[in-house]
């Protein structure tokens, strides 16, 4: 497939064209917090792409922190598509997410394996994700906390991208990576990238890959964890953990949720809300018992789910190495150190 070029001067036009068919999500910084949100047409000119990882991951575009599954009213029929939901506008047009980093783009593919598998289909996820168009923006400047290369990713990884962008200064190189991406981009009569542009892209890739922290071999990690259940490391690691959900809520792949009914006297809604294995309430049972009574069990769950259970169920680590949990942890509990420690104990 040809690699094309979107000049930054034409970006506004490009996005405006896209906005006719898609609801566009792009990175914005508001009150010191960067995240992806729906972009109104008039905001397109104001977008900036010189961010690192957004503070908040983009998972809420497809898997909102709170969403109404259905509303109910005992006097009428069950309604499966909530009338009062903010999701309606998203569903009327497919979603295009512009400028997502390779780690986050990859997180969508992992979540898709969880939410849309042969065994289970989550229609709420599927409705949003199946037609979505993902514009991945390569990381020219990975952070010191990035470790995507440990978990089968990289600053120029195309996994999950429909169109792969590289910022080469005055323009973006745009490489279609899926049929969907190709169709969209070929309608646009974009200029083909010149040899010099491609060289620039290659150079940036090499530079970024040399910048990122040295990779650690994790092929045996899953197996190491198979027999790690009773290791004292869990208790040791959990000791300083505050059991807040900063790591899991800011994780692009954490996807555990709770389902609740909100309403009274025969009327109401069923909602699902992000939940976190870090919370005591996460496994609190109606009978009053809790299989994960202390931080030790909760810490074990977080690590095991990412580096053992998901390898078994979807064949990949449930971590894309974005480093948000490292940056956001109030006590600097660094998941890379936990991984290294497990490897050290097992070797």
């Amino acid at each position: 497939m040809d690699i094309l070029k979107i000049k930054k001067d034409n970006l506004k036009q490009f996005l405006e064209y896209l906005a006719k068919k898609y609801t566009i999500f792009a990175p914005v910084e508001e009150d010191g917090v960067s995240s992806f949100r729906e972009i109104e047409k008039m905001e397109i000119g104001k977008l900036k792409f010189d961010f690192y990882n957004t503070d908040k991951p983009p998972k809420d575009i497809f898997f909102p922190q709170t969403e109404t599954l259905f509303t109910y009213d005992e006097n009428s029929q069950l309604s499966t598509l909530p009338q009062d939901s903010a999701n309606n506008s998203q569903l009327s047009k497919p979603i295009a997410i512009f400028g997502v980093r390779p780690c986050d783009a990859k997180s969508f593919t992992l979540l898709d394996k969880v939410f849309d598998s042969e065994k289970y289909t989550d229609t709420y996820w599927k409705e949003r994700y199946k037609d979505a168009l993902v514009f991945t923006l390569a990381c020219n400047n990975p952070l010191s906390t990035c470790f995507c290369n440990w978990v089968d990713g990289g600053p120029f990884n195309k996994n999950g991208a429909d169109i792969f962008l590289i910022d080469i200064g005055e323009a973006f190189l745009a490489e279609p990576c899926s049929k969907k991406g190709e169709e969209v981009i070929h309608k646009l009569l974009l200029q083909k990238a010149a040899g010099d542009d491609l060289k620039k892209g290659e150079h940036l890739k090499r530079e970024a890959e040399s910048m990122i922290s040295k990779s650690i071999e994790l092929a045996s990690l899953k197996k190491s964890l198979d027999s790690f259940w009773d290791n004292p490391l869990w208790e040791e690691t959990a000791r300083k953990c505050l059991n807040c959900a900063a790591c899991t809520y800011l994780c692009p792949t954490c996807h555990c949720f709770d389902i609740q009914d909100e309403g009274k006297s025969g009327k109401g809604k069923r909602i699902r809300i992000w939940d976190s294995c870090m919370f005591k309430l996460f496994t609190q049972e109606a009978a009053g018992t809790n299989p994960r009574p202390t931080g030790k069990e909760r810490m074990r769950q977080r690590i095991m789910h990412k580096f053992n259970y998901l390898v078994e169920t979807i064949g990949e680590f449930g971590c894309v190495g974005c480093g948000r949990c490292i940056i956001s942890c109030p006590v600097n509990l660094d998941v890379r150190e936990v991984i290294k420690e497990i490897k050290k104990i097992r070797n």
Binding site: D31, V33, L242, N243, C244, A246, Y249, L250, F279, S328
Partner: peptide, 16 residues
């Protein structure tokens, strides 16, 4: 309101 609207209910404040 503006400050609190940034809250994601992770309870890091409470737990710290």
């Amino acid at each position: 309101e503006k400050e609190i609207s940034k809250c994601i209910r992770c309870y890091a404040c409470r737990n710290a």
